[in-house]
């Protein structure tokens, strides 16, 4: 049952609008238990990869791949109904603003208890207790108060914890987190990442962390895939290994308080364009 390979993607391509735009262009990913980061700037296709894996792209996007298997199943072959069952149960998506992922007219308690009923087969009372326990586990200080709150009444950090809590109930094999911390205050950021880490460790899940912050991702993930214009230009275990001029440019463009400079280094776009035209990307 427990096989090492959770996700195996080969030559994933996503086209929008009749093939005119290739948002993702031949991406290969393979992932077992553990954390993979996908880093890139806006328009690099990083979010599109996440959504394509969840099959959440709009119908006018065409997704093709030589191989797209999750836990031994071919995702491209699955019917929409089977896919729907898979999402939220065995694969989950965490988005930037949790308040959009939660139902705005139901209390947190109802939604978390629903997850407990669905995934653990609990009855009503048990489900409520399970919901409270899970909120405590994601270190929400007053779980009872939060259970009775509506999504708009809680902070972004709290919302992300609730999302992670619901995921702990479902025990997904794969979690895709798309900029889970970029709407949060810096001090909450660390705690949310810690929770994600804990979940991956304890449940033996795979995590794909999608972010624009290359330093944060490199500190958190075992491997980083750097995306540029729909392609993975480089896969690294450590920022020190960066060789590609795009990755190096990205790293040096970030101001670093430890290494103050008078002017920031701006990525060399001319060199990038040249490399691209020579097919080097």
């Amino acid at each position: 049952m427990q096989n090492d390979q959770i996700l195996d993607v080969c030559n994933l391509t996503v086209r929008f609008a009749n093939g005119a735009v290739r948002a993702v262009d031949g991406v290969d990913l393979s992932l077992g238990r553990g954390k993979l980061g996908i880093v890139g700037e806006s328009g690099s296709g990083k979010s599109t990869v996440g959504r394509a894996l969840m099959r959440l792209l709009p119908p006018f996007a065409s997704v093709t791949a030589d191989r797209l298997s999750f836990d031994g199943q071919d995702l491209l072959d699955l019917s929409e109904r089977r896919m729907h069952k898979l999402r939220g149960a065995r694969m989950s998506l965490i988005m930037q603003d949790p308040r959009y992922s939660l139902n705005p007219v139901k209390t947190i308690g109802i939604q978390v208890a629903e997850a407990a009923r669905l995934h653990l087969g609990h009855r009503r009372k048990e489900a409520r207790d399970a919901a409270e326990a899970i909120l405590e586990r994601v270190r929400i200080r007053e779980p009872r108060r939060v259970l009775d709150a509506y999504p708009h009444q809680i902070s972004g950090g709290m919302g992300q914890r609730v999302m992670i809590g619901m995921m702990l109930l479902a025990k997904p094999r794969l979690v895709i987190a798309d900029e889970p911390t970029s709407a949060l205050d810096v001090s909450v950021r660390g705690e949310v990442l810690d929770l994600l880490d804990e979940m991956v460790e304890q449940e033996g899940a795979a995590l794909i962390l999608i972010s624009h912050d290359i330093r944060m991702v490199s500190a958190f993930c075992e491997r980083i895939a750097v995306m540029y214009k729909g392609r993975v230009v480089e896969e690294l275990a450590h920022l020190g290994e960066a060789e590609h001029i795009y990755t190096r440019g990205l790293i040096s463009a970030m101001p670093d308080p430890r290494l103050p400079v008078r002017r920031l280094k701006v990525p060399d776009r001319a060199a990038l364009a040249k490399l691209e035209s020579e097919g080097g990307i």
Binding site: E41, S42, G43, S44, K229, R269
Partner: peptide, 10 residues
């Protein structure tokens, strides 16, 4: 949309 087209040069 909140999206820069990547390049800041034209």
């Amino acid at each position: 949309t909140k999206m820069s087209d990547g390049g800041d040069v034209p």
